[in-house]
Design a protein around this nucleic acid. Structure first.
Lengths: 196, 196
DNA sequence: ACGATCATGTACCAGATGGTACATTAGTGT
DNA sequence: ACACTAATGTACCATCTGGTACATGATCGT
C-alpha cells in the first residue's frame, strides 16, 4: 500500500465515498467515478483491489482509535480524579458521540466491513481480531485513571451494547428510542455499582 | 421467487453453503458448484441473483421467527405464570440458544447480510426494517404472559446487547468471556427490577 | 537546464459474470 | 399412448472485471 501524500488525499475521498455509497459490492470503476478519478489511478495508488480495501479498513480502525484517544483526553483533563458516579456521564458522552447522525455513514461502513470480514475476505485481515481489544484496553486505562473499579467483562458488555444499539439505529430505529434504551443501560450499570 | 418443492430443497442447500462459505461476494457459478448444481439451475429456480439473495434473506428471517416462536412456546408450557425472577432464566435460555456454536455459521450469515443490507442492496429489501420489531413484539407478548412489567426500551436493550455480544463471538472472543458479560447484564437487569 | 521520479491518460487484455436460447429428458395426468 | 410441464444440460452472449503496457505530462532536486 503506497502512502504518499496524494495517495492519502485520495484515500480520504474513497472513505467518504465508501461511507456514503458503500464499497464492498462496487467495482473499481464505480468507485473511481465516485471520487473523480480513474480505476487506473486507484490501482496505481493502492496496488490492487485488496490493497484499496485494506487501506479503507486501516483508516476505519485509525478513526476509531482517534475517537477513543479523544475521549480519553477529555477525561484526563476533566479536573481531579472524581468520584464514582462519573462513569455514567462518561458512558453517555461516548454514546452521544458515536450515535451522532453525522457519524452514521461511518457506522454503516463499519458494519459493512464487518459483513465481509466475518468470512475473512482479502484485505480485511486483522479487522475482526482487533475489533474490541483496543476499546477494552483504552477504556480500562480511562477507568483506572478515574479510580473506578471495572473489570473487562463489564467493559465488554458496554462496548457490545453500544454496537447493538448502533445497529438498531442503522436499521431505522427512532433515535429517541435507542437513547432511552441506552440511558436505561447506564442506570442499570450505576445501580449495580452503588448497590454492590 | 419460485417456491416448488425442489426449489425449497435447493434453497436449503444454498443456505447451508452461504452459512459456511459466505454468499455476498460469490458468483452464481461458485455457489452452484458448492451446492452441487449449475448456475443455470440457480437462475431457473430463483429467477435472478437478486431473487436468490432475497430467498436466502427470507429464510433467515423465517428461521429467526421460528427460534422466537420456539422460545415462546417453551415459556407458555412452563407451568403457572410464575413470579418475576423468571425473566433472568429466560434471558439466559435465549442467550444459551443463540450463542450455541452450532448456530455460529448462521450468526455469521446474519451479519454478512446486515453488511450488504445497510446500503440496501437489491434482494435485501425489508431486512433491516424488520430486524428488531418482531423480536420486540414477541418478547413483549412473552413478558406479558409471565406477568412481567417490561417496556420496549428494556426489550430493545436486551436484543441489542445480545447482538453486540454475538458480534464479539464472531470476532473471536472467548465464549466464557462473553458468557460472563451476558450474565453480568442479566444481574444488572434483575437488580434493577427488584430494586425499583 | 535536465534527468528522474511521480502522476495520469489511453488502450488493451484474458477471464469471469449474470442471463438467455434451445434442446432434451423425466414424469404425470388423462 | 400422448400431450404437457417441470427440470436439466450445452452453448452462447454482451458486458464488466481487475490488472497491465506504454506513452506522456508534471514537478523537483541539483
Amino acid at each position: 500500500m503506497i502512502v504518499s501524500a496524494s495517495s492519502r488525499e485520495l484515500l480520504d475521498r474513497v472513505i467518504a465515498y465508501a461511507a456514503a455509497e458503500g464499497i464492498t459490492g462496487r467495482s473499481l470503476r464505480e468507485i473511481a467515478a465516485g471520487v473523480g478519478t480513474s480505476h487506473r489511478m486507484l490501482l496505481y495508488h493502492f496496488g490492487s483491489r485488496e490493497g484499496l480495501l485494506a487501506a479503507v479498513v486501516g483508516l476505519i480502525e485509525q478513526q476509531q482509535r482517534d475517537l477513543l484517544g479523544e475521549l480519553a483526553d477529555r477525561v484526563a483533563s476533566s479536573g481531579p480524579p472524581a468520584e464514582g458516579t462519573k462513569a455514567g456521564e462518561l458512558m453517555l458522552l461516548l454514546w452521544a458521540r458515536v450515535s451522532d447522525p453525522e457519524l452514521r455513514p461511518y457506522v454503516r461502513l463499519f458494519f459493512e466491513v464487518v459483513g465481509v470480514a466475518v468470512h475473512d475476505a482479502p484485505g480485511t485481515g486483522g479487522f475482526l481480531a482487533n475489533l474490541t481489544g483496543p476499546w477494552l484496553d483504552e477504556s480500562e486505562a480511562v477507568a483506572r485513571r478515574l479510580g473506578l473499579a471495572v473489570d473487562r467483562d463489564e467493559l465488554r458488555l458496554g462496548v457490545a451494547t453500544c454496537r447493538g444499539l448502533l445497529l438498531e439505529l442503522l436499521a431505522g430505529a427512532d433515535p429517541r428510542a435507542t437513547d432511552a434504551s441506552y440511558r436505561l443501560f447506564v442506570r442499570m450499570w450505576e445501580s449495580r455499582l452503588t448497590g454492590a
